[in-house]
Design a protein around this nucleic acid. Sequence first.
DNA 1: GAGCGTTGTGTACGGCCGTACATATCGGTG
DNA 2: CACCGATATGTACGGCCGTACACAACGCTC
Lengths: 197, 197
Amino acid sequence: MARRYDPERRQRIIDAAIRVVGRKGIAGLSHRSAAAEADVPLGSTTYHFATLDDLLVAALRQAEDGFAKVIAARGGLTDPRSDLATELAAWMREWLAGDRTGVELEYELYLAALRRPALRPVAAEWADDVAALLSRRTDRLTARALVALMDGICLQVLLTGAPYDEDYAREVLARVIPPGPSPRPWSPPPGPPRSDA
Amino acid sequence: MARRYDPERRQRIIDAAIRVVGRKGIAGLSHRSAAAEADVPLGSTTYHFATLDDLLVAALRQAEDGFAKVIAARGGLTDPRSDLATELAAWMREWLAGDRTGVELEYELYLAALRRPALRPVAAEWADDVAALLSRRTDRLTARALVALMDGICLQVLLTGAPYDEDYAREVLARVIPPGPSPRPWSPPPGPPRSDA
DNA sequence: GAGCGTTGTGTACGGCCGTACATATCGGTG
DNA sequence: CACCGATATGTACGGCCGTACACAACGCTC
C-alpha cells in the first residue's frame, strides 16, 4: 500500500537520528537536527515522525537490531562448553573498550525509557531478547539476573568513569550462575509471534 | 525594588530544580523553569548557577544526601543478624512502591552522568557511598556487585514497566553474597577525608 | 560616609524549537 | 485521462531558551 518516492527516505532519517544522538545526545536531537544530518528538508522529518518520541522509538528499535546482529555475528554465546561468566565478562570488555560512543548511544536510548513511556515496550523487548539469548545457556531467572547485573556493571563504568575490571565482572557473574555444567536449560514454548509493528 | 539579601536563595533554587526535574524531567529543566518554580527572577538562577550542569550537580548532590538520610533513618542495614539479601529486596520493594516519581527523579539525575562528565564525580560518590554502607555487612567486592545488581533490577522495573518481583530479587541477591554468617567484613582504612566541595 | 566587591534584578537579543499549513509531486485506480 | 490519497517540501509563527549586560541594593572596610 505504501508507495513512496524515496523508499529509503524514512530509513535515512532514522540513521541520521542515531548519528545525531551519538554525537550530541538525545538532548541534541530535534526534527531539524535530524533533517540536517540526513540532508532532507525539515518537513520530511516531521512528516515521517510526527513527534520526537516516534523518532526515538525507531532509533531504539534499530539500535536493538544492530546489537542483536553483533551478538549473532560473535557466535551468539552458543558454545555450551565455554564458561558463561568468562564469556560474558570478555564480551563486556570488548563492548566497553575504546570508544564510548557506541555503548553510550545504546544506553542513552535504552535509559530514555525511564521518562518516555513510548520507549518502554521497545526497551522491554531488548531486555527480553538478551535474556532469551542467555536462556539457551541457563535458566530464565538466572538469565534475567545476568542481564541486570551486566547492566549495573556497565552503568557503573559509564556513569562514574571507573575502569572496567574484567576479573571482578567474571567473579560476580559466576556467583549468579548456579553450579553445574548446564543447569536447567530452557527453551521458549511455542506461542503467537510477538508483534513487531 | 523590595530587595532583600536572601542567604537561602541558592538553596531554594536547588529545591525548585529538583521539583522541576521530578515533574517534567531533566529535559524540562531550564534557568527559567527553575526560576519560576522557586519564584525568583531569571537573573537569580543564572547568577548562582552559570550553567545548567552546575544546577544539576547541586541537585544530584542534594538528592544523594536525601537518599543517605533515608537509609540512615531506616536503620542503615546495620543489624548483622538479619539476612542481607532479604533486607535489600524488601528495601527495593519499599523504594519502588507506589509513586514512581521519587525513584525516577533520583535515577534520572544519576543516569544523566552518562552524557554529562560534570556529574560523574557526584555519581561516583553516590555509588561509593552505597557500597561503603554495604561494606559493613560484607566484603567490598560483594558490596559493589550488590549495588550493580540492585541498579540493574531497579532499572529493568523502571524501564520496562514490569512489576517488581521481590522473591526473584532476594534469590539473586543471595547468590551474589558469599555463604557464611558474616563473611569477610571490611572496614575502611583511615585516610584523608574525601573532598566534598 | 565613601568606596568597593558581592549579590540580586530587569530587559533585551539572537537562536533553535515544534507545529501548522499551503503547495507540489507522484502512484495507483477507475 | 481524471482523480485522489500518500508522499514530499518550503515557509512562517509563536514560544522557550541561554546569554549578556547595565543597574540597584546591600555588607563590609577604611
